[in-house]
Design a binder for these strands. Structure first.
Length: 273
DNA sequence: AACAAGACCTGCATGC
DNA sequence: TGCATGCAGGTCTTGT
């Protein structure tokens, strides 16, 4: 489900619910998601005080008292729902947290590509899932100049390079496709050829499409809903993703679908070069 | 070292 | 209706 904008939407929704609140109880229905979960995760979380949820790439990080941090990754099909009372749990509700206010948040993930971890807060920089992550695309550390240097010399496609979380962290299949359309760049173009005006356009497009998607509450396709139950309205603003056979909004050419390194790419063969 | 493919897992739409 | 197939927003692991 979730790329950076969806995860940020979840983080924003969690913020008023968990910030400064103590965990009253934890419901954990299995010992593994993508990997085995930490031992006694439920007991170790019970009674902890939560600080303001943060986001790094597609990870949600909630720092707790006693020097530990809870990490949540939603994988492909993960979602978080919020309640102001005890919910009726469903089949794939693997992890649920009750706060002292009586509010609950429920982590649901049918495919179980998601993950939870609990680690010592000072280890964030060396955590195996976090240490290799690239630049945050919405931060001031990301610019056209940085994009150029990241892409220089790479022989793979720009599509594959933008999906590589070690370079830029947080983009996924939807927003890479949408950013490339806005920048007028073919997903098949060699990453190493992104320089000059193309790099300027692409860096701007990446920042714009992510910011707009966050404003819209993300993109709802199959699984994603905002934690309050509302859909993510950016689905209405997709210009190429999933638009195979439709007319390009700019030139009316037919949007094409190809497969690149096992992932679907959608693009306008006329606007994107 | 860089890159592509395979693997993980479930649910849903499609077509026979 | 039932079954097989293919596909899905991610990313670690394996193989070239």
């Amino acid at each position: 489900m979730p790329e950076l904008p969806e995860v940020e939407t979840v983080r924003t929704a969690l913020e008023p619910v968990v910030s400064g609140q103590r965990i009253k109880s934890v419901r954990l229905t299995r010992g593994d998601l993508r990997w085995p979960l930490p031992d006694r995760l439920d007991q170790r979380l019970t009674g902890r005080l939560c600080s303001v949820p943060q986001r790094r790439s597609k990870y949600i990080l909630i720092q707790l008292d006693q020097g530990e941090t809870l990490l949540i990754h939603l994988g492909m099909s993960g979602a978080i729902r919020l309640y102001n009372h005890k919910p009726n749990f469903a089949k794939h509700d693997h992890f649920s947290v009750e706060l002292e206010t009586g509010a609950w948040f429920v982590f649901s993930d049918p495919r179980r590509f998601g993950h939870l971890d609990l680690f010592a807060s000072p280890d964030e920089g060396t955590h195996p899932l976090l240490s290799g992550l690239g630049v945050e695309p919405l931060s001031s550390a990301f610019s056209a100049e940085v994009l150029k240097s990241l892409m220089a010399g790479r022989k793979t496609s720009i599509k594959a390079a933008l999906l590589d979380q070690r370079l830029i962290a947080g983009l996924g299949n939807i927003y890479v496709g949408e950013a490339l359309f806005r920048a007028g760049i073919s997903p098949r173009r060699k990453a190493g050829s992104i320089a000059g005006a193309r790099a300027d356009r692409l860096a701007t497009a990446i920042k714009q499409v992510l910011a707009e998607a966050i404003d819209a509450g993300g993109t709802s396709l199959r699984d994603h809903v905002q934690p309050g139950g509302e859909i993510g309205y950016f689905v209405q603003n997709l210009r190429v993703y999933g638009q195979t056979g439709k007319a390009c909004v700019q030139c009316a050419q037919t949007i094409r679908h190809i497969v690149q390194s096992g992932r679907s790419s959608f693009y306008c063969p006329s606007c994107q070069r």
